[in-house]
Design a protein around this nucleic acid. Structure first.
Lengths: 104, 104
DNA sequence: TTAAATATATCGCATGTCCTATACTTGCTG
DNA sequence: CAGCAAGTATAGGACATGCGATATATTTAA
């Protein structure tokens, strides 16, 4: 039916590429690892068809790079990516910070 | 070009309908007022072509109702909407909470 | 009354984010 | 070598979120 509303009444999609950048600002990771970190937080793991297009888009945008290491591709932030994620975090906190404040 | 990345390297769209529900959980408001509250937080005001379809979608979903009062249509959460927004806030904080923690 | 501002609403377009399904590569094991 | 599993990748579909443009009704100002 209207699949994307899981009992929340509203669409809770979004901010995937931002969350990926934020995770990579903590530690470099390969695709599957990133998906599992997101699963820990959101409760469900993004599928391959979700995560790899997002990584490709970020790479094309010059904020992450993927380095092939044997079986896996390890992604990390570029120096531009490091600057970008700082700005993104500021924007994110200004936009949604009080939602978090009010529920601790 | 790739319009939606404003120097953040990633797409910062998303969570509009959630943010609307959250705002309405504080105070009932009409469309323009909601747009201005979002502008205060995000830095730019969502246009009419963004905000009204979102309100319509939330109304169709049964989580908000719009009541015509003179010039404006005042929106408020339905009782289902009030329950939904609580669940949505929990999901949101579990998904993104640590991003706020690390930047206070 | 006419004009301007405010509020609501819709259309078309682009793109990100989700999914399922399919397929390829690599490394390991039998 | 053959087969399997893990990881990577793309195609195609659905939908929310953005925009600009356009339109209408109502209120306020000139």
């Amino acid at each position: 039916m209207h699949g994307t509303r899981g009992g929340y009444g509203c669409d809770m999609r979004g901010m995937l590429s931002f969350q990926i950048m934020w995770l990579l600002s903590k530690k470099e990771m390969h695709g599957e690892e990133i998906a599992e970190e997101i699963a820990k937080r959101r409760g469900s793991k993004p599928k391959a068809g979700t995560i790899y297009p997002a990584l490709k888009s970020l790479e094309e945008n010059g904020v992450i790079t993927g380095e092939k290491k044997g079986k896996t591709v390890v992604y990390s932030l570029t120096s531009e990516g490091k600057r970008s994620v700082k700005r993104a975090v500021i924007y994110f906190c200004r936009s949604f910070g009080e939602i978090f404040e009010g529920s601790s």
